[in-house]
C-alpha cells in the first residue's frame, strides 16, 4: 500500500456552531479497496461522506484525489472527479421516470441541445437490466416503483458514469435478501474493477463480509482503522460503543500466527 491513495481525507473538520460533527479525521482509500465506515447515529460518518461527495463544505482539512488536492464546492465538482454517491435517501426526483433520474444533472443532449430521451432510455435500459433483469417499466415516475427498483436506479446512477470512488450510504437498508445479495455481488465486481468504495453501514455483518478495512467513528473522532483480519466483531462493537478497543486487545491475525 505504498502507492498514492485514491482518496486521502486529511485532518477534516466540520463544526456547526460549537458542535464538532467531524473532529480532525484523516482517512484514506486505495484502488480496489472496500472500506467500511461504522459508528453510531450522529458519530459523524454521514457528515464525513457528505464532505467527500461535495454536498457539504468542510470547516477545515484537505481532500486529495490521487495525490492531487481538490476543492469540492458542490456535488458536480466531486462527480467530475469520479466520486459518486448512493445516498441513503436515494436522492430521486419522484415525478420523473427512471432514465430522467439516471441522467439527472448530466442529461444527454442532441446536437441542437434538446434532451436526447431516446439515447437516455436506451442507456438506462442497458444498465438497469444489468442490475435487475425484471426492470421493465421505465416510463413510470419513480414514485410508483418498488423500494428495490428505486434502489437499483440510485445504484445504476452511481456506477454508470466513469466512477473511481463510490460512497454507499446504507445501500441495503431498503432491500430484501435477494437484492442485498445482488448489491454484495456488485460491490465485489466493482472492487475487482479497481473502484474504491466507502461503505457506510449499521450492519456489522455486512461490513465483515464485504470490507477489506473497517474505520470506526465515535463522537466525531476517528477511533480506529483496522484491517478486517485484525479485529473481531466484538472488538469493532467496543470501538463503536466505547470508542476504544478492549483493554487486552492485540491484533487477531498476529495472535493466530503465533
Amino acid at each position: 500500500m505504498s502507492q498514492t491513495p485514491l482518496v486521502a481525507m486529511i485532518d477534516i473538520e466540520k463544526h456547526f456552531g460549537g458542535i464538532r460533527a467531524v473532529d480532525h479525521v484523516s482517512v484514506d482509500l486505495h484502488e480496489g479497496e472496500v472500506v467500511g465506515l461504522l459508528g453510531h447515529n450522529g458519530a459523524g460518518k454521514s457528515c464525513l461522506m457528505r464532505i467527500l461527495s461535495g454536498a457539504m463544505a468542510p470547516s477545515g482539512g484537505e481532500i486529495r484525489i490521487k495525490g492531487e488536492a481538490v476543492h469540492f464546492s458542490e456535488p458536480n465538482d466531486a462527480r467530475d472527479m469520479g466520486v459518486e454517491t448512493i445516498y441513503q435517501t436515494l436522492a430521486l426526483a419522484d415525478h420523473l421516470d427512471a432514465p430522467a433520474n439516471l441522467f439527472l444533472g448530466r442529461e444527454l443532449k442532441t446536437r441542437f441541445g434538446n434532451l436526447d430521451d431516446k439515447a437516455m432510455l436506451k442507456a438506462a435500459r442497458e444498465v438497469l437490466a444489468r442490475l435487475n433483469p425484471n426492470f421493465k417499466n421505465l416510463h413510470d415516475p419513480v414514485s410508483s416503483l418498488s423500494g428495490g427498483q428505486r434502489q437499483v436506479i440510485a445504484i445504476a446512477r452511481a456506477i454508470y458514469f466513469d466512477t473511481k470512488v463510490l460512497i454507499m450510504d446504507e445501500p441495503t437498508a431498503a432491500l430484501g435478501p435477494s437484492e442485498t445479495a445482488m448489491v454484495a455481488g456488485l460491490i465485489k465486481e466493482l472492487r475487482s474493477a479497481g473502484i474504491g468504495i466507502f461503505l457506510v453501514s449499521h450492519d456489522i455483518h455486512d461490513v465483515f463480509d464485504l470490507c477489506d478495512r473497517v474505520v470506526v467513528m465515535n463522537k466525531g473522532r476517528l477511533v480506529g482503522s483496522h484491517h478486517i483480519d485484525e479485529v473481531s466483531k466484538d472488538d469493532v462493537l467496543s470501538l463503536i460503543v466505547k470508542g476504544e478497543l478492549p483493554a487486552d486487545w492485540s491484533a487477531r491475525n498476529l495472535k493466530a500466527a503465533q
Binding site: 454536498a55 458542490e74 456535488p75 458536480n76 436522492a91 430521486l92 426526483a93 433520474n101 439527472l104 444533472g105
Partner: peptide
C-alpha cells in the same frame, strides 16, 4: 434536495 445532490 435530491436534485441538488444530483448536480442540478
Amino acid at each position: 434536495e435530491a436534485s441538488r445532490l444530483s448536480g442540478v
